[in-house]
Design a protein around this nucleic acid. Structure first.
Lengths: 217, 217
DNA sequence: GACAAAACGGAGGGTGCCTCCGCTATAGTT
DNA sequence: AACTATAGCGGAGGCACCCTCCGTTTTGTC
């Protein structure tokens, strides 16, 4: 139910054409409002690094050294650092897109009944967080922080989840004395659980969801 | 003695009484069932390292390099590794005691009503896990693994928590379809939440506890 | 094609993990 | 008390990582 979602969120399953899309997203990010466009070689390398990082993080966050990413991208370590002053910066750019995808997937859940829609989204979020442990952990760790990109992520997440949660609360499907920030933190904490048995994590998540259910009195 | 530092370098911040306790605890651990006692210098250094590690981890897990601990203990890095083949081994020995204390505290909760007793223990466990983030995270990460000392910890934790949980389940205070392993994982996940506002974590924990409550259905 | 500026990339400094091995302190033996 | 086998010590050094600095190369413009 939880992890093996119909909606595929892992990047490595995204067709190449879409990856190009992602790259142009990065371009948008770059040329957002600052002065002049990147030089051709710079843009090329920037994209190569982001792609390599995306791959590397997807494979499993553990052995994700920046030097490894640079090597994988066929780029000098200096170049990587020129574009991303630190590990954090790179992480941010990478999961910016990934978070967006989870958020986008929320729209199609508005058709479901309030509780079901809410639970479905939570499960998607959890599924995403679990598969992207490396990214997710850092995302959650900085959830309350002030980094620009994190603000964006949080904003996206709220925009997507808030309607689902609000509706569920209005219809007395979810308890009133909580909010999306808490819910996301709760889900995030649970996805951090290390276990050899994914089913266990799912059971635990469902216990937590029970705690979110509205209770008369 | 080959140590270049004065012996009291690392340990002088711990009250003497506690040191004695720690040492004798370690002694018990060591002489458990194996053959011959440690040589005097070995035992001395072993204790120094454990004390230094305890301090270092308590101060905040971040800057907890083994080399730093060795330095702090006034001991060569080689000596540290002689006693603790890797980071894991050292962590294990250190929080072995700490876990024991949480466990011991469970006994006095048997007097409370089932649900209250259970919740109280969970809160203590959570409190412990939060203050000892560094240790706790690793403890939880390896919770399902096979390391000897982890087995001991788990055993202690179960011995302490199981009666409380069982009683609460018998009295229909806690849902029947869960077990202590899941509960501990759940609590562990929540304590991993990074937040500037501890009250938020408490609210989230209470939501999760609500999920554990028995529900007539 | 020439030139300035932007970007590259890798050497290298700092730190951490862990291993190896020559030297030292210890504890039985005499 | 002296002797000796050896458990134990400690740090040099190999490897990996993070990140910076700067000489060299690539671009874009004229």
């Amino acid at each position: 139910m939880t992890t093996s979602n119909p909606t595929q969120l892992a990047t490595d399953t995204i067709p190449v054409s879409d990856q190009a899309l992602l790259v142009s997203d990065d371009a948008a990010l770059e040329g957002d409002e600052t002065a002049r466009p990147m030089r051709a070689d710079a843009r090329r390398n920037y994209d190569k690094v982001v792609a390599a990082a995306r791959e590397a993080f997807a494979e499993g966050g553990a052995e994700t050294s920046l030097e490894g990413i640079a090597r994988r991208a066929g780029v000098g370590i200096g170049t990587l650092y020129r574009h991303f002053p630190n590990r954090q910066a790179l992480l941010e750019v990478v999961y910016r897109d990934e978070v967006k995808q989870v958020c986008r997937s929320a729209e199609e859940l508005q058709g479901l009944p309030a509780w079901e829609g809410f639970v479905a989204w939570i499960n998607r979020l959890a599924g995403y967080l679990v598969t992207k442990q490396a990214l997710a952990h850092e995302l959650l760790d900085y959830f309350g922080h002030d980094s620009d990109v994190f603000k964006t992520c949080r904003h996206d997440l709220f925009e997507a989840g808030e309607p689902l949660l609000a509706r569920a609360q209005e219809q007395r499907a979810v308890r009133a004395d909580t909010n999306l920030a808490e819910v996301i933190q709760l889900v995030g904490g649970i996805t951090k659980i290390q276990t050899t048995d994914p089913a266990q994590r799912e059971r635990i998540l469902s216990i937590a969801l029970d705690g979110l259910k509205y209770r008369a009195q």
